[in-house]
Design a protein around this nucleic acid. Structure first.
Lengths: 238, 238
DNA sequence: CTCTGTGAATATATTCACAGCC
DNA sequence: GGCTGTGAATATATTCACAGAG
């Protein structure tokens, strides 16, 4: 079974299904965004150095990341912006459309529903669900909020693959369980709690207070490093 | 210079300022949340196995993470919940109060302002800023929105250490520059763009579309692994 | 006997530095 | 000459497995 085959421009193409490191996967969306900006600004070619500067990262890391996808640059020149956008999109699975259900239409759920720019394209919000009868029926960004009781039916009929949980923490695990039972295997959790899921389901958590705490830790460290300097100890740990 | 000294219970206490790995720092807030839940449920002691299960992680990793803070468990028994909460809080710098300014009071900024549960305590939102005169003056969660023109003054008089950027992408860099010039060294960025800052400033980014893209990548991979099984190739890459 | 704390082993990720191609 | 692509070197992170405290 061949593991490499030439693409339309004769460049090598890596077997995508294999091993792109997690750390790389987490950075590809950032590169994609920077590339999209460049494309909009009319830039057609970019060097690893320039793109790395745009995302605030080292050029060697960027080149290595891109090398996991294949060999899509030109030595002595750089990367063709449009082509690289296409290749990263393909590697990330953004050439197909992903259908998203948002559960929990409080102020955060509303903000998420309104945030139309879902990574350019690739994602469509197909349903909004909430438990509060006062919210059900409300229209947000062209979609009517439906009752969370309809969850299973909505997931099935809308063929949703991704669930966004924006409920209070107390409701999150139950909603999550029902999403999973309905066949959703990818969940983005905004509720401030840990969700327990079967192995085959992937959960990512976004949490304001976690982020603030990480910042606080570093700020605290930073401050004490300054004190160390004032103390005259010389070396400041980084 | 001593690197270890006994604490009030005679346990070893590590030099906090030194090297807690980044990966560990990113997990401590999660442990903290789980511990707080346990404390509220009246649990007074927990084993590494039980706590690891609650956060969906391995017990060895948890024990190693905690070991970077010091030796706060009891062999054969486990960890005292309240005491561990205190030690993690202290290590994370949550014994002092952090003052937060939110810039950009659109639907997301509003949601952040209303989200009172800022990681239990440790964080206080001290100001809300927006560029839109129609929004300035509005009261959200007891705070009046002020004009972004006042940014420098507000940061100084409120002694804010953390800035949250929830503006549109087009305004984010300018707001960020002004926060930095005003002395803020920790920034949480919700705008869908990369912020460029001096070395001494720490930025963390929260981005819906990045998260969705990472989920999409794994979902895609997952799907193809199933096909591989159907194909009869046997081994399914994880 | 149980469960922590931790060295040692392994796995992942980043950085270096340069060969190879344009 | 300039810039990519990548092995080799280094640094970080995770996992194993068990000595040792209670």
């Amino acid at each position: 079974m061949a593991t490499e085959r030439p693409d339309r421009l004769g460049r090598r193409e890596r077997p995508l299904r294999q091993g792109i490191p997690n750390a790389t996967v987490a950075r590809l969306p950032v590169y994609l965004r920077a590339l999209t900006s460049l494309a909009e600004a009319g830039v057609s070619t970019v060097s690893s150095e320039a793109l790395a500067a745009a995302v605030g990262d080292g050029s060697a890391k960027l080149r290595k990341d891109l090398s996991y996808l294949g060999s899509y640059g030109t030595r002595g020149v750089g990367y063709e912006v449009d082509y690289l956008i296409y290749q990263i999109s393909r590697a990330m699975g953004l050439t197909q459309d992903w259908r998203v259900v948002i559960v929990g239409i409080g102020s955060l759920g509303r903000a998420l529903a309104r945030y139309g720019g879902f990574g350019s394209r690739g994602f469509t919000v197909v349903a909004l669900l909430d438990a509060d009868p006062a919210v059900v029926g409300e229209r947000i960004a062209g979609l009517a909020v439906r009752h969370v009781g309809e969850l299973e039916g909505v997931v099935a009929e809308e063929d949703a693959q991704i669930g966004v949980v924006a409920t209070p923490a107390t409701a999150a695990q139950e909603v999550c369980d029902r999403l999973v039972a309905a066949g959703v295997r990818s969940i983005l959790n905004f509720a401030p709690c840990v969700l327990t899921v079967p192995d085959e389901v992937m959960v990512r958590k976004v949490d304001l207070s976690t982020e603030l705490q990480i910042l606080a830790f570093h700020e605290q460290r930073h401050g004490s490093a300054e004190l160390a300097v004032v103390d005259g100890t010389g070396e400041v740990a980084r």
